[in-house]
């Protein structure tokens, strides 16, 4: 149903090539997240799929048919915009009804779908309000409601949560995941927030400057990042990178170790440093370590509370099997005995 295939898709704005030739397949029913730093072309890619931008060359195939030249409305996709893009002069009911009205659906069916969507999204009490009288989270839900009543082949989300506060964001994240489980429709979700990507995705597509750096499940990316960029982008706090002699000991140009993969001790260990800022989150503590002679600062994650204070000496020992090795090009090197 909602299988989307991009073949050699290129997008240029004037001279600037924002998306270099790109191939990607999104399977039916998959929750795919495009993640990457701001300006890397995530929105552009999504808009190409939606048909809001024309491809410079290449093909877009949706559900087996060539959709490259198809008008946005004909592609059977629904999009939720970052600004929600609700129609401000229409009530919530009319906003949600709009795509169905445009499709000329009969009134009874429209009412049935509105009622169903409103119930699923907790909007029943707000149907007669205007978007201006709703909170950010409610507006977001209206935008989702407007998308689901069309029963599209796939949903496209462009940073839908970036205008919400942190608590709401977590809630809406769950709701969208829930929605995906329930509808089992293909969803493409764009975000610059790797936490959203990790928590929601079946498949993550990491983009940098229009290039796909790696495609894989969240755990694939976490465990075996293909290069330094992915290694640094996925995972929070960021992976620690060490160059030079220490890396050479492992036969690599750069080695990486995640903050959660180091043993910490105040008496002995492989690497020595001085405690800088400690961020206490209750469940765990992030400690920034200086003066290790290995990297500018290193971050370590320890469970719960630790008795380490600013200025204390700290020893860290990486868990050998959790070390990532990268060559001079920044590409992952095969693990000893195991191909990468």
């Amino acid at each position: 149903m909602g299988r989307i295939v991009l073949e050699k898709v290129v997008k240029r704005f004037g001279q600037a090539e924002v998306i270099p030739p790109l191939d990607l397949t999104i399977e039916d029913g998959e929750f795919t997240v495009f993640v990457g730093p701001s300006g890397c072309g995530k929105s552009t890619l999504l808009r190409l799929i939606a048909g809001l931008e024309d491809v410079s060359s290449g093909r877009i195939v949706i559900d087996g048919t060539d959709a490259t030249e198809l008008a946005p409305a004909k592609r059977g996709l629904a999009m939720v915009f970052q600004s929600y893009a609700l129609y401000p002069h229409m009530t919530v009911r009319r906003n949600i009804a709009f795509p169905m009205k445009m499709a000329g659906m009969d009134q009874a069916e429209q009412d049935r779908r509105i009622a169903k969507a409103a119930e699923a999204l907790n909007l029943t009490d707000y149907l007669d309000r205007k978007p201006g009288q709703l909170s950010g989270g409610q507006r977001q839900r209206v935008a989702i409601g407007r998308a689901i009543v069309r029963e599209p082949q796939a949903f496209l989300f462009d940073e839908p949560l970036s205008n919400l506060d942190a608590a709401l964001r977590v809630g809406m994240r769950l709701e969208i995941s829930e929605l995906h489980k329930r509808l089992n429709t293909t969803m493409i979700y764009v975000t610059h927030d790797q936490v959203e990507a990790m928590t929601m995705a079946d498949k993550i597509v990491v983009l940098r400057a229009g290039h796909i750096e790696q495609v894989g499940s969240p755990l694939d990316l976490y465990r075996t990042p293909r290069n330094l960029f992915v290694a640094g982008f996925i995972g929070s706090p960021r992976m620690n990178f060490i160059d030079g002699a220490e890396a050479a000991k492992h036969g690599a140009h750069t080695i990486g170790i995640r903050p959660e993969h180091m043993e910490v001790s105040s008496t002995s260990g492989l690497w020595k440093g001085r405690v800088g800022v400690a961020e206490h989150l209750g469940s765990d503590t992030f400690i920034h370590v200086h003066d290790t002679g290995l990297a500018e600062t290193m971050t370590i994650r320890v469970d719960g509370e630790v008795d380490l204070h600013h200025g204390d000496t700290v020893y860290m020992t990486p868990r050998e099997e959790m070390l990532h090795r990268f060559d001079a090009q920044g590409l992952r090197m095969a693990e000893v005995g195991v191909p990468a």
């Binding site: 939606a50 048909g51 809001l52 008008a71 946005p72 409305a73 996709l77 629904a78 999009m79 915009f81 970052q82 600004s83 893009a85 609700l86 129609y87 709009f98 795509p99 445009m102 499709a103 407007r146 069309r150």
Partner: peptide, 14 residues
């Protein structure tokens, strides 16, 4: 006028 509104309407089939 927020251009996303027009784009949303376009995708909604208007």
């Amino acid at each position: 006028l927020d251009s996303e509104q027009l784009e949303a309407a376009e995708m909604d089939g208007a």
